[in-house]
Amino acid sequence: MDLSIFFEILSSTIRMSVPLILACLAGLWSERSGIVDIGLEGKILTGAFAAASASFYFQSAWAGLFFAVIISVCMALVHGYASITQRGNQVVSGVAINMLALGLTSVIGNSWFKQGGRTPALGDTTRFMPINFPGRESLFNLPVVGAISKIFLDHSVLTYLAFAMVPLSAWALAKTRFGLRLRAVGENPHAVDTAGISVAKLRYQAVIIAGILCGVAGAYLSTSLSASFVRDMSAGRGYMALTALIFANWRAWPALYACLLFGFLQAIANFLQGVKLFGFEIPVQFFNALPYVMTVILLAGFIGKSIPPRASGVPYTKDR
């Protein structure tokens, strides 16, 4: 294995991490407000479909992003209505969102484009391509420095947006009044209610933020990482983001590290297909399963302890 593969893996790690980071932060916002979000997967999927379709229809990646966010927020509001207004079971609602997303994107995509649920391939002008920094080519052509800088600079604007959302979320949750209230509503909604602040409004805001972030994650999948939407293209990323969130103990910065780690495992799995290490072929499935195995072990309290927000999953009812 030579060094260039190593650089490739690192670059791929970043690409693989982006949708995880966005979805994981979406989960963070939602769950910190006390709304369990199994439906990340479904929102990413609808976002990806909306982005690819709108981007093709309007011939603009930004239009794609816009519709991805709108549609994903709509799905989030369905979840919000079920779990906040109707006080329904949040897990059940999330499962329903995921199924609806899978079914609707496939049925509608199939009828619109007649390509078995696939959307038409997007050209470079209608996708989010790596940003064309001035002097980019000459920098990449340098020995060593070029290869290293390529790991970090050969990405689209959505990638940088995703990474920027980490400090932003961490700051907003920890330092702003809104963030403080939002965290409080996930720990002790009665206290927040007593202070005269609307629990439902805060939770709806959190759910909408989650919708926006998932929409961006979807747009990244279909208009940046690949050039069209295919059936079930989120391929469990929403669940993996949820896993990363638990692994990170519901905190923004650890969430970034967990997503990078899981993204790294995905990148390795892609690159090491059939490659022998020390005369022994490590099965790809091992890397695919590793994030889940690690999280199960973590959840079981064998390494550290993962503690969810206290009121998460509990519908809020005012005491009479």
């Binding site: 059940v92 199924m99 079914g103 049925v107 199939n110």
Partner: peptide, 20 residues
């Protein structure tokens, strides 16, 4: 109408029976 129409119905049933 692709076969995934069933998945849509399934999702709606779960949404209305389980969460709503």
């Amino acid at each position: 109408i692709s076969r995934d129409m069933i998945v849509v119905i399934q999702g709606l049933v779960i949404l209305f029976m389980g969460a709503l």
